[in-house]
């Protein structure tokens, strides 16, 4: 088992997620390698740095030109071995920037969707736990069209959690909200990190959010990793730079 990933990170058992991918998207070239072992890692960088493309490749929604994606020792993508596990079999939860709730289902059916298509038995305890964690009990019979932006994002988080993912990807989940709504939701995300026991990759260009949520940061700029380190390295200068 003393295998190591290409960028020299520790082998299975310690490594949660190991990513090394290359992708050309028109003029833009992405070439990124990082590992994440902590409970909450942030991908931090300005718009256009390639953050969303990168997590789409982790989720299996975008195919890298070359590289390898590995989670808990299981290879999800390996261009050399021609491995490419389809998105629907990766068990990676994804909270999209715009929520992407199913408009034709009620909130309850949105939350239950992952369990339903996965053919799992209903788990009232897990359902209740997530509903209480995110405080969405009063919304269950509504349709997404009637929800506020903040409510929608909480449902999107709940929906991703209830498919029992081994990793949760959050792509700027607060970007579409005004600052008052952001302050409402941040505590839920902190609770999520502390109580849900699912490791998170948190994508953001907002230093305040990242400081609150993440413990480790991977800096991305122009398709490259420029630095990695603890969240304490986020300083005021960078906040101004990216604001």
């Amino acid at each position: 088992m003393a295998r190591s990933t290409r960028d020299g990170a520790p082998a299975r058992g310690v490594t949660m997620l190991a990513v090394q991918v290359e992708k050309h998207l028109g003029e833009f070239a992405l070439d990124v390698a990082f590992t994440s072992e902590s409970r909450a890692t942030a991908l931090f960088g300005p718009s256009g740095a390639g953050k969303t493309s990168l997590i789409n490749m982790i989720a299996g929604l975008l195919r890298p030109d070359r590289g390898r994606v590995e989670i808990d020792g299981e290879v999800l993508f390996d261009s050399a071995a021609q491995t490419d596990v389809p998105a629907w079999r990766r068990r990676i939860g994804y909270v999209f920037q715009e929520g992407r709730l199913f408009p034709h289902f009620t909130v309850r059916h949105n939350l239950e969707y992952g369990r339903w298509v996965g053919g799992h038995k209903s788990d009232p305890a897990a359902f209740k736990h997530v509903v209480e964690l995110l405080d969405i009990g009063h919304l269950l019979d509504r349709r997404p069209g009637k929800l506020s932006g903040g409510e929608r994002q909480r449902i999107a988080v709940g929906r991703a959690l209830l498919m029992q993912p081994r990793l949760l990807l959050l792509d700027e989940p607060l970007a579409s909200l005004d600052s008052a709504r952001k302050r409402d939701i941040l505590p839920y995300l902190e609770r999520l990190r502390d109580e849900a026991r699912v490791p998170m990759i948190y994508v953001s260009h907002n230093a305040t959010e990242v400081k609150l949520i993440a413990s480790r940061v991977v800096w991305l700029d122009d398709g490259k990793v420029t630095a990695t380190g603890g969240v304490e390295r986020l300083d005021a200068a960078q906040v101004d730079m990216l604001a």
């Binding site: 989720a59 929604l61 629907w88 990766r90 199913f102 969707y113 992952g114 298509v117 996965g118 498919m163």
Partner: peptide, 21 residues
Amino acid sequence: RKLEDAAATLGANRGWTFMTV
């Protein structure tokens, strides 16, 4: 089509995605 991507991340294969979304 982003809704279909969302269905895929939730574990729906192409057939399920077609039928349910």
